[in-house]
């Protein structure tokens, strides 16, 4: 029983790190994704091309590889050492997820009928006003489902940070596995399940709250 309690506390600590990476990534990648979405829809062709190329590279390579590149890259290229592991992991996650989010945003924005924008224009609204007052909520309504998918994936992707030895829940379990205890590894699933369950409820609530918008 005491082992169980001890392991639970250890895993909980590892899960704290998991949550930390999750929330920081989410807080930064959500707005950054919107910026990238605008970049990929920019009227200036060079901007659009560059942004789309970045999205292609980021979505086209494994996240694990990106974490490694961000962490080891600076020291290999510039000879700078002492880069914070967790910071590197978060940078990689934010860039990666912002690119995925940007495509979801883009789809959401482009699926709002052009007549909505025209109605705003005819009423003398500025582009910014049209985006925030007319398009935004309609976009949100459309992207809740794909976003929830992506965000739930993020929860589990956080386990990748252990490639640069950031200690999160799976790594904690692996450590105890090396000491001969296998069950903590399976036990980690419970933490993920509970967390994702909570998120699922949250998304369901959001969908319910947005039901008043009929498109």
């Amino acid at each position: 029983m005491t082992t169980f309690l001890k392991i639970t506390l250890e895993l909980l600590e590892g899960f704290g790190k998991t949550c930390e990476i999750f929330f920081v990534t989410l807080a930064l990648a959500l707005p950054l994704g919107l910026v990238i979405a605008f970049g990929s829809m920019c009227r200036l062709r060079p901007v659009r091309a560059v942004v789309r190329a970045i999205v292609w590279v980021v979505r086209g390579t494994p996240l694990m590889l990106q974490i490694i590149v961000v962490f080891y890259g600076p020291s290999l290229i510039f000879g700078v050492y002492g880069f914070d592991r967790e910071l590197a992991a978060i940078v990689a996650f934010v860039i990666n997820y912002a690119c995925y989010f940007s495509e979801i945003y883009r789809g959401g924005i482009q699926s709002v009928p052009v007549g909505q924008r025209e109605a705003g224009q005819v009423l003398g609204m500025s582009k910014t006003q049209i985006f925030f007052r007319v398009t935004f909520m309609q976009m949100i309504k459309r992207i809740v489902a794909p976003m929830s998918n992506e965000i739930i994936t993020l929860v589990k992707d956080t386990s990748l940070v252990r490639v640069i030895s950031v200690v999160e829940i799976i790594m904690v379990a692996e450590t105890s596995m090396r000491k001969g205890l296998i069950w903590p590894l399976f036990y980690t699933g419970v933490f993920y399940l509970l967390f994702v369950g909570l998120l699922t409820l949250l998304f369901r609530y959001a969908e319910k709250k947005l039901e008043y918008i009929k498109i």
Binding site: G115, K141, K214, I215
Partner: peptide, 8 residues
């Protein structure tokens, strides 16, 4: 023609 009211 298609009204284009803001649904939200």
């Amino acid at each position: 023609q298609s009204f284009n009211l803001f649904p939200h």
